[in-house]
Amino acid sequence: MPAASTPPRSVSARSSGGRGGPARPPDAPPARPARTGTGTAPKPRRRRRGRVVAAVIALLLVLVLAWPVGLLIWANGKMNHVDAVSGELSTPGTTYLLAGTDSRADGVLQGDDTEGSRTDTIMLLTVPRSGRTSLISLPRDTYVDIPGHGPNKLNASFVFGGPPLLVETVEALTGIGVDHYVEIGMGGVAGLVDAVGGVELCLDYVVDDKDSGLVWDEPGCQLADGATALAFARMRKADPLGDIGRTQRQQQVIQAVTGAVADPSIVTKPGEQVRLAEAGLGALTFGNGTNILDLGRLALAFRDATGSGGVRGTPPIANLDYRPGGVGSTVLLDEALAPAFFESVVDGTITPEDADPNG
């Protein structure tokens, strides 16, 4: 009986070109691996190009972030410090004492017999825990009791004992603890005004004052250079409001300089940032413990105080020409109203009407 013929072997799906597809010939070239997904696999060249772009972006980000950090570190090292704040008196919020000083060394006191330095500008910039930020000018001739020296004008405390005694005297007068001391050399301010290309200042009357050197030909606003801005800040005798008018003009100068330095276009000009930082820091001396971040907070506080929600002005005054004897003409604060006024500065309840000398 003849043997049964063996049926042909079926081709399995494993050896075929696909499930149910034709068998792959033994001599066929190796198959390319199948592409997964629906898109096209990226080419190596494109991957390399993407990595390069990513690296460049990362480098730019590092430079953009590192430049401000480096500038802050550099600027912090350029700050000049002096012992000024004792920390013995503490009140809520943060208060900066701003003192504008003239010095014979600056060439500012030409024709003046005053030795050394004196302070013609004394301001308290207070940021309360809540409420209004305020910038209160204390007239330099305010009649005060200077610790260890007796009654005299407020600015005499700076002559007698420098920044520490000025801080102590202001704290005793106002009951407000000073957290940061910032001394502004008026000669340096003139240089900073020139560094920003001048600032716009406004005055509503004509002035030709030989003592300060200010010449204002017509009422209105003018672009002032450093020398003019300095004379504008120092002029007193030709001002109808005397010392009060001068404090208002000093605030105007500082506000104008602050606005010029805060120009957004400077952000894209690293060289300009360094130049202005050098000019600004060269005009400033800081109390112990104050750093560059505190200076930034001060700038923000100044902006708030001079904005629509802030308060600028002076404490209540009883007499602009008080003559107690021995110290000449002084400014006498209103003893009945001043304590409550300074309390409102600390708790942020002060209003623009409270600080209006003509109100």
Rank of each mutant, 00 (worst) to 15 (best):
V178A: 01
S90G: 15
P315Q: 04
R35T: 14
E88G: 15
T169E: 01
A279I: 04
P339N: 06
D120M: 02
E343S: 13
T101W: 02
G17I: 09
G20W: 09
E353A: 11
T38K: 10
G150K: 08
T119R: 01
R9C: 10
S10V: 11
L124E: 01
R303K: 13
Q251D: 12
P139A: 03
T126D: 04
P26Y: 08
G271M: 11
G197Q: 11
A224M: 04
R49Q: 15
S329R: 04
R104H: 15
E88S: 15
A299K: 09
Q222I: 11
F342L: 04
G37F: 06
D211N: 13
I292N: 03
L97I: 05
G18P: 05
V346I: 10
D334H: 06
E115P: 15
G50T: 14
Y181V: 03
A283I: 03
E278P: 05
R35F: 12
T6M: 10
P22R: 14
G259K: 01
P92F: 07
E168N: 10
R45Y: 14
L97E: 00
S344G: 07
I184L: 08
D106A: 15
I176M: 05
D209L: 06
D243N: 05
V108M: 13
V327Y: 02
D145A: 10
D294E: 12
Q250M: 06
G271T: 09
S134D: 02
T169Y: 02
G177D: 03
A224W: 01
V311Q: 01
V189T: 04
D179M: 05
H149A: 10
T349Q: 06
L281K: 00
L230P: 00
R249G: 00
S15M: 11
A190T: 01
G150R: 08
L97V: 05
L63P: 03
T40Y: 14
W74C: 09
T349D: 07
S157T: 07
